[in-house]
Amino acid sequence: MNLVTVSGPPSSGKTSVILKTIDSLKKRGLKVAVAKFDCLYTDDDILYEKAGIPVRKGLSGALCPDHYFVSNVEEITNWALKNDFDILISESAGLCNRCSPYIKGIKAVCVIDNLSGINTPKKIGPMLKTADIVVITKGDIVSQAEREVFASRVNTVNPSAVIMNINGLTGQGSFELSTLLYEEELNINSLKGMELRFPMPAALCSYCLGETRIGESYQMGNVRKMKVED
């Protein structure tokens, strides 16, 4: 089985891109399943079910979604292996721009959209910079010039990625993406021993543990202060 991790800022079009791409994968006779990770709420599992795609959903709630993702990706992979799927696509939303959900040796796709502004590629960390494939969406509503500038900025922060434009509404470009997702030699039987491409953003201060009061005396653990000049 192949595992593909798809990540990207909220509302960038991950689900639409995945749904359209799975259409093409299915036509090749491949059995595809999805694991959807989100923070507080998602209805996307219903969209997948409607399309006849086996799906598992995980909500991280009060936990950092990325930490939650890594803590569960092995189990979800085992589920997919047990059910004899050919491809498992994990979908997770990057929330803090410092997210780092990719695993060494596992194909990593980042989805970002043209509407997020041309400085966005600069602002996103490992989620964009260490992806193998960067999918840019919503190109149909911006000008050719903006599309070109956006793609070139993505290329500057991640020169080795394949950059593709996909229209999540019409599916234009999704067939092309589907040809890059499945590779016989990337078959895995387990995630045991595999490693993240980059450490996750750190956490664990008193607020992580449920503290609600404001003030220095309540702050413990990983706390850092900004420099506020007079």
């Binding site: 149909d140 509503i141 000008s143 050719q144 070139s152 993505v154 290329n155 950059i163």
Partner: peptide, 16 residues
């Protein structure tokens, strides 16, 4: 990404 065969001009494009 620097060598794209097709550039598109479509009706409902905007400057954002």
């Amino acid at each position: 990404s620097a060598d794209k065969l097709v550039a598109q001009l479509s009706q409902n494009m905007n400057f954002v």
